[in-house]
Amino acid sequence: MKLIYAIVSSDDSNAVTSALTKEGFFATKLASTGGFLMSGNTTFMIATEDDKVDQAIEIIEQHSKKRKQMVPSSATYGVGLYAPFPIEVTVGGATIFVTNIERFEKI
């Protein structure tokens, strides 16, 4: 048995939840925050049989799209002079970890 941790953008969370549920996967959702953009994410914890890991990852991949977004930044000009300017970054997609489950109980 495996445990899948999937960190997805909160924008994609509902689509991922619906697709996983439709295919018979059970997932626990945790609200999380990304370190770089400090934006909202959802971390899914999905326990599944070894032979269904690839199917779960495919579902997550299909519903977690990468996209470009402009975010505020700042640059330093000279000594102590700061000017804000937007930069384009890629957001979305998913970060996925798969680990072995030594013991699983649902009580």
Rank of each mutant, 00 (worst) to 15 (best):
residue 40 G to E: 13
residue 48 T to A: 06
residue 88 E to F: 07
residue 74 S to R: 12
residue 29 K to R: 13
residue 30 L to Q: 10
residue 64 S to Q: 04
residue 100 N to C: 00
residue 92 G to P: 14
residue 46 I to D: 10
residue 18 S to C: 02
residue 96 I to Y: 00
residue 27 A to R: 05
residue 49 E to A: 14
residue 78 G to S: 07
residue 78 G to L: 09
residue 90 T to I: 15
residue 38 M to I: 02
residue 11 D to S: 11
residue 9 S to W: 00
residue 57 I to H: 01
residue 53 V to L: 07
residue 21 T to Y: 06
residue 29 K to H: 05
residue 19 A to R: 07
residue 13 S to M: 10
residue 99 T to C: 12
residue 30 L to T: 08
residue 94 A to G: 00
residue 79 V to K: 12
residue 14 N to M: 14
residue 81 L to R: 11
residue 33 T to D: 00
residue 68 K to Y: 07
residue 7 I to F: 02
residue 55 Q to W: 02
residue 86 P to E: 13
residue 29 K to N: 10
residue 95 T to Y: 05
residue 97 F to Y: 08
residue 8 V to Q: 08
residue 103 R to G: 06
residue 103 R to D: 12
residue 79 V to F: 10
residue 52 K to G: 09
residue 103 R to Y: 05
residue 82 Y to F: 11
residue 4 I to F: 01
residue 71 V to N: 06
residue 71 V to P: 00
residue 59 I to M: 04
residue 106 K to P: 05
residue 8 V to W: 01
residue 9 S to F: 01
residue 78 G to V: 08
residue 29 K to Q: 13
residue 16 V to I: 04
residue 70 M to Q: 15
residue 3 L to Y: 00
residue 46 I to Q: 10
residue 34 G to S: 00
residue 93 G to V: 06
residue 21 T to V: 09
residue 86 P to R: 07
residue 102 E to S: 15
residue 100 N to G: 06
residue 75 A to D: 08
residue 32 S to I: 02
residue 65 K to W: 03
residue 55 Q to A: 13
residue 98 V to S: 09
residue 32 S to F: 00
residue 91 V to L: 12
residue 51 D to F: 09
residue 99 T to F: 06
residue 69 Q to A: 15
residue 90 T to C: 10
residue 10 S to P: 04
residue 69 Q to S: 15
residue 59 I to E: 04
residue 38 M to D: 11
residue 10 S to A: 15
residue 10 S to K: 12
residue 97 F to H: 04
residue 58 E to T: 08
residue 36 F to N: 07
residue 22 K to V: 11
residue 49 E to H: 12
residue 87 I to H: 02
residue 8 V to E: 09
residue 33 T to W: 01
residue 47 A to S: 15
residue 50 D to H: 04
residue 107 I to K: 03
residue 72 P to I: 01
residue 66 K to V: 09
residue 48 T to S: 10
residue 106 K to N: 13
